[in-house]
Nucleic acid binder design. Structure first.
Length: 700
DNA sequence: GTTCTAGAAC
DNA sequence: GTTCTAGAAC
């Protein structure tokens, strides 16, 4: 007891090994503790230790030693399922440092389904593979024992146990220690498993612990559990939750009233949380004494807003993960109307930390920003913020200017100011919402990669390289392969990597229709209309979008809706023209799920498919399977869910079916001869919603 | 995206 | 033998 008292006077570092399979909630555990603990922690996660990618055990050990030297306690966030895997980390405890284990023994099904569902995990375990991996790992599992060298082991079997454990470490101050022993284990092959509730009684009864923080900690944790205000499954539902970190808009330079601003922040957070799934919003400020943070914190708690999903955080918004242990995949930038680096505060810091990549990526999206508006900018994977902090998007947002010493201020008009600030947060949170939706449905994208995921990237790179093959010199190819260079051809504009030269033709026409008079049928500021060079039917033309960075359907977002509507309208106009010439022509308007050529283009194609250029299965299936996405459906989807669904390229390899009667044919010539004479009605699906455009008298 | 062609399918 | 496809090359 005496010893314990003495020890508690000094900082008492600990090493905590998390033990559990993928999906058991290890990362969430660490993140939650790191977020609010007063003890300096370092989370050592093998999944991201190598520049955001999976690394080795040796790297983890090295980093752990460094962190311990810096006086931090460490979480070892890797599976650590067998004794051998754990042994070297236990040795870290040789110099008076305690080594703890927290065992996340959640039902395998829970872990598997989380692993399968997860889209933002820093590791590499998505899709159905997860089940196999988790199962295999669990087979080799050895539960930790005190005699391995742990001074303390805690077992968690459900979310409530996990929450208790989190709280215990959460509240553990730098001087505090926790009682030694084995806690919470269910099937007792050890003697000391009093179960979680018994454990609390035991701890509060410990005389030596009564003066240190651990007692209070555990008691509070206990009370929290007993009052059962903890919503289940809040913890560990995914390992990395989509999180937006944002600074308070307009309250620094623009001198917006803090009290009013905090009302608006809380109001908007409350409004958006329900729309954001499990995603989190974090208000960040650099200083500990931040008034806006405390105001927001108080108001949020008054309104009973879920503090797991909306909270405040003190730290540098550009170093939240590396220095604060808080992983935010999206950060907001309180920017200036020119969307330029400089000025001061957050804007300068973010542009500086992100390097020139951010400026380039921003320029592609917008040149200026109005107060109340926001623009979402995906960070290229080359960007330091992406690599080091796991930030995939920066959302620039401009708030109202209430600073009387600055030009264009609102002259203390808070009616207008508040309206604009509300609008700013709405734009910001909507932007975040669109990112969350993208990332949950399309976790893989090379130029807009969400979370480091080496396997996906490798796969995608090789896919892209297929298109790329043979078109460039080897040096460039190698550079692209390693992801170190961006393609700077074509007007010197940066483009996402991987498009071969032939695939750029449409992009070039879209950007410079005036240079392609011979093929361009018409163009406006937003669209270019051309005949398809290799028409796959009697009439086949393309409506190209003229917007940069809109390479295909996958890139389409809500903000492009108007453009899509215009493209559709122009397509309809041409259908009308063609049908005036030949009323028997029947058309469909739509997009290829995955285009071969860069630049979003709408196909306007007659359904006869009478063409010598239609030569192979890929041609046929790209227009007649669900790989072809009808423009009407795309419009609906973008309107309702902020993006369009895209079908798998596998559909292109499917059997050859007649587009009318759906009969199967063995090869292209036979299919074509059948199609030429097939007079069956089109499938029901196409007869609905104007997917098929036919003149009334010819509609069969 | 197309062209070319080896070799599979018939 | 010819027809047709699939994959490499561009």
């Amino acid at each position: 007891m005496e010893l314990q008292m003495e020890d508690s006077e000094k900082t008492k570092q600990i090493v905590v090994l998390l033990i559990g399979p993928p999906g058991s909630g290890k990362s969430t555990f660490c993140d939650t503790v790191l977020r609010s603990s007063h003890r300096p922690w370092s989370r050592i996660c093998q999944d991201i230790i190598s520049n955001g990618k999976a690394g080795t055990k040796a790297q983890c050990l090295k980093m752990a030693i460094n962190s311990l030297k810096e006086g931090k306690s460490v979480f070892i966030d890797r599976c650590n399922l067998d004794r051998e895997q754990r042994s070297e980390f236990i040795k870290l405890g040789d110099h008076g440092i305690e080594v703890h284990a927290v065992v996340l023994e959640l039902p395998a099904q829970v872990c598997i389904s989380r692993s399968v569902k997860r889209t933002g995990h820093e590791g590499n375990l998505q899709g159905g593979r997860a089940a196999a991996v988790v199962n295999k790992m669990l087979q080799g599992k050895e539960l930790p024992k005190v005699n391995e060298g742990f001074s303390r082991i805690m077992f968690c079997y459900n979310d409530a146990d996990v929450e208790n454990a989190v709280n215990i470490y959460n509240k553990l101050g730098p001087m505090d220690t926790l009682p030694s022993g084995c806690f919470g284990q269910k099937n007792s092959d050890t003697k000391s498993q009093p179960g979680i509730m018994k454990f609390f009684k035991k701890v509060t009864a410990l005389p030596g612990a009564s003066s240190n923080g651990a007692t209070n900690t555990t008691r509070e944790a206990n009370e929290k559990t007993e009052s059962s205000r903890v919503s289940p499954a809040k913890l560990g539902s995914t390992d990395v939750v989509p999180t937006l970190a944002f600074p308070s808009i307009s309250t620094a330079d623009f001198q917006f009233d803090l009290d009013k601003a905090s009302d608006i922040i809380v109001e908007k957070a409350e409004e958006f949380l329900p729309k954001l799934g499990n995603a989190r919003l974090v208000l960040v400020d650099l200083s500990h004494g931040s008034k806006i943070l405390s105001l927001v914190k108080a108001k949020a708690s008054q309104k009973n807003i879920d503090s797991e999903r909306f909270f405040t955080f003190v730290g540098d918004i550009t170093k939240l993960r590396s220095e604060g242990g808080l992983h935010c995949n999206v950060i907001a930038n309180a920017t200036n109307w020119r969307l330029k680096a400089g000025g001061g505060g957050v804007n300068a810091a973010i542009f500086k930390a992100a390097g020139p990549d951010l400026e380039t990526a921003t320029r592609v999206r917008a040149n200026t920003l109005l107060p109340g508006k926001a623009v979402v900018v995906p960070l290229p994977s080359t960007c330091p913020l992406h690599n080091a902090e796991g930030i995939t998007h920066v959302i620039h947002v401009l708030g109202p200017n209430m600073n009387p010493n600055r030009p264009d201020n609102l002259n203390n008009d808070y009616t207008k100011g508040s309206k604009t600030l509300r609008e700013a947060y709405t734009s910001l949170f909507e932007g975040f919402q669109s990112v969350v939706q993208d990332q949950s449905k399309f976790p893989k994208r090379s130029n807009q990669t969400t979370i480091p995921d080496s396997c996906q990237n490798i796969k995608e790179d090789s896919e892209r390289n297929k298109k790329f093959k043979g078109s460039q010199d080897k040096a460039l190819a190698d550079n692209l392969e390693s992801g170190s260079l961006e393609d700077t051809r074509d007007c010197g504009q940066k483009v996402s990597k991987g498009w071969s030269t032939w695939a750029l033709a449409l992009h070039s026409i879209a950007m410079h229709p005036e240079r392609h008079e011979n093929v361009v049928l018409e163009y406006s500021d937003n669209i270019v209309v051309i005949n398809d060079q290799y028409p796959k039917a009697r009439k086949h033309m393309l409506v190209l979008a003229r917007q940069e960075n809109l390479d295909g359907l996958e890139d389409v977002r809500k903000e492009n809706l108007q453009l899509l509507q215009e493209m559709h309208k122009v397509g309809l106009k041409w259908v009308d023209r063609f049908q005036n010439e030949d009323a028997s022509l029947i058309f469909r308007l739509g997009y290829h799920s995955v285009p071969s050529m860069r630049q979003l283009h709408l196909h306007v194609i007659s359904q006869d498919f009478e063409s010598d250029s239609l030569k192979n299965k890929k041609h046929w299936n790209s227009f007649t399977s669900s790989f072809f996405r009808d423009s009407v459906d795309v419009l609906e989807e973008v309107k309702n869910q902020g993006k369009a669904n895209v079908a798998s390229e596998d559909l292109l390899k499917g059997e050859l079916r007649c587009n009318r009667c759906r009969s199967v044919h063995p090869n292209i010539p036979k299919l074509k001869s059948h199609v030429k004479s097939c007079r069956s009605q089109f499938p029901d699906h196409l007869l609905q919603s104007n997917r098929l455009l036919a003149r009334p008298e010819t509609k069969e």
